[in-house]
Nucleic acid binder design. Structure first.
Lengths: 354, 354
DNA sequence: TTGAAAGCGCTAACAA
DNA sequence: TTGTTAGCGCTTTCAA
């Protein structure tokens, strides 16, 4: 028995009666080898149980066919969807994915990130709150495309937030709301800036006023905190930075006896699984997460083989209407207890049909 | 300018005035080199911005310092926790993680899995429903440890299901339930068998009868289906195979006007995030997912460097009591039922405690 | 403790 | 179309 090590191209070459380089060609660029020869080689390979060794190939070519998926929180449901899309696209293109959980750029993770980065050809990065500088230093090391965030001229794939905001405003406007409160997410988040801008524009467009509270952390706890502030500044409709905040909001509001959506409508961004599970279901803007992950990878791959442009793309979103939004009440039934309804602003609302 | 390629040990060697092999030693096994020399080398390395090349090292040693995390569903919240724990442990040990989403062993993914497998030193596998044969062929290729599932003598890390069942039974028994219905998960799932066995044992121990319906898919939809069958065979307490089924059950039951927990108590397994979000909150058995992921990796690493045993370990679970369980009603108020529930929207049900 | 030299398995000119 | 021949950057005997 000739040792137990895995067979190499040399073993295959000997058995097929060709040179090792021919075997290499047969696998790395089929077509560059005569059909008959290729058949013999394939036959020999399967007999021997030969499998190409990606590591050896990588040393020789300098390309590993691996890409890093760098995220700040694997446990975030949105991240998971992004990952799935990215993995599918990578797998389809023959690439293996290394996922690195950078956990908000914590110091201990830095080393792991560096390690991961040095073995991949490029990276797809979903790090909504990472500091710009961190991203820049990352991009300096390897080609990368950003997910769910834009930065300078760096290639990225994002949802069309402005359009999402427009749909939200249209929806809320139809329901008779004349003013909405935006519960802001982390101040450094690119998405937060986009939502604010979208809010202003859509507000003009649909004649809906807006004001803002926050920032709050993009978590359920953050939303619960925000609810406190909301109580002091009544409103009939709130747009939360994301689903998690919206969920926290709904929970805290409900706990205090405020009816959602009867007294206040709440909407979010994201359409995470939990938004369909809570009571009432959350009306939200759904980002095409899976598609974003996949497109991010495809764009990165295009960048790597030079066939792609380093452009940014905004993918269409869709409005998912659930139970957390309702028509603005003319006469709040809950007059007795600390209602959230704004009585003022002078104007009586036109009651549209539901 | 000497080209823009990354510096190698040769560059460092020249600058430090030593041989390349000495530089190699300085990084791969410090201590095997004189302190002064090591200092010079380190200095030269940082000046040049040298970083070890993991790929080259891997060709030379045959070990990549990467491990695969093979899962069947990245979007499953439990999987995400497992991943996080595994990643932390791997990172701490200087290992990079490749995650492969095998998606229930679908054919197209097979190739991606093979690719991933051939670049790693070993694998941690969280594939609750994968066929035994798939696991065996996997383990034949690389050392592996199973998560949340046992198979033969393969090393694995699992939760202490029997104990979880005991706690559940004790809890339900205290609440006056004399008979529970177990809503089974996939028949081929190892965990399902364990739950059934645990159920029998704990039933004896606490004098609680049990019967079983199913199997059902371990999804919310599966739970909703199960609810239909449950209606035909009334019960005061149900133990679901997992949280997802339990959630589906609660939703479907509520939608039909059955009060949880007043008319029927429902418990699950897993303590996924959503179980705290639904109304009522789900009483469930929490597995130490993060710890399991981490331990799985550590055990794998032990296996790889020969310092570990190929044993299986069961980690302690804990009972999380929320609003979905209550004392058994003497006289079920089925009279006015249905009218009490506003399906999907109302805030009549008590808001679960977090 | 250090250096010289031979690989690891593959790819990529360059020739034939 | 195929073979020859250098590497890729690192580790690892084996000597010195």
């Amino acid at each position: 028995m000739a040792g137990n090590r895995a067979p190499t191209i040399y073993d295959v070459a000997r058995r097929a009666g060709v040179a090792a380089s021919t075997v290499s060609r047969a696998f790395s660029r089929p077509g560059r080898v005569a059909a008959g020869t290729a058949d013999r080689i394939r036959a020999a390979a399967t007999e021997l149980g030969y499998r190409t060794n990606p590591v050896a190939r990588a040393t020789a070519t300098g390309r590993t066919s691996m890409i890093a998926l760098i995220v700040t929180d694997v446990t975030d449901p949105a991240t998971a969807e992004l990952l799935r899309g990215a993995q599918e696209a990578a797998g389809a293109a023959g690439f293996t994915t290394v996922v690195s959980d950078a956990q908000d750029d914590g110091v201990p993770q830095r080393e792991a990130l560096e390690r991961a980065l040095s073995t991949v050809d490029g990276a797809v990065v979903a790090a909504p709150h990472a500091p710009d500088t961190a991203l820049r230093s990352l991009v300096a090391q390897r080609p990368a495309v950003l997910l769910d965030r834009m930065l300078d001229g760096l290639p990225s794939v994002v949802p069309d937030i402005a359009d999402g905001m427009r749909r939200l405003m249209a929806h809320l406007g139809e329901l008779g709301h004349e003013m909405v409160t935006y519960v802001a997410g982390p101040a450094d988040a690119w998405a937060d800036g986009m939502r604010r801008r979208g809010l202003r524009q859509a507000g003009c467009e649909y004649g809906v006023q807006s004001r803002r509270i926050g920032p709050f952390p993009a978590t359920i706890a953050g939303g619960m905190t925000a609810a406190g502030e909301l109580l002091r500044r009544p409103t009939t409709a709130v747009i939360a930075y994301d689903d998690l905040i919206a969920i926290g909001l709904i929970r805290a509001l409900s706990a205090r006896g405020i009816l959602v959506p009867q007294e206040v409508s709440v909407v979010g961004f994201g359409n995470v699984a939990a938004s369909a599970l809570i009571t009432p279901g959350l009306t939200t803007v759904a980002s095409p997460l899976r598609a974003m992950g996949a497109l991010g990878v495809r764009n990165l791959l295009g960048l790597l083989d030079g066939s792609g442009s380093a452009a940014s793309e905004a993918l269409p979103v869709r409005l998912v209407v659930r139970g957390s939004t309702a028509h603005r009440r003319r006469n709040p039934a809950s007059a007795g207890r600390g209602s959230l309804i704004v009585s003022g602003a002078g104007s009586y609302l036109p009651v549209a049909t539901l």
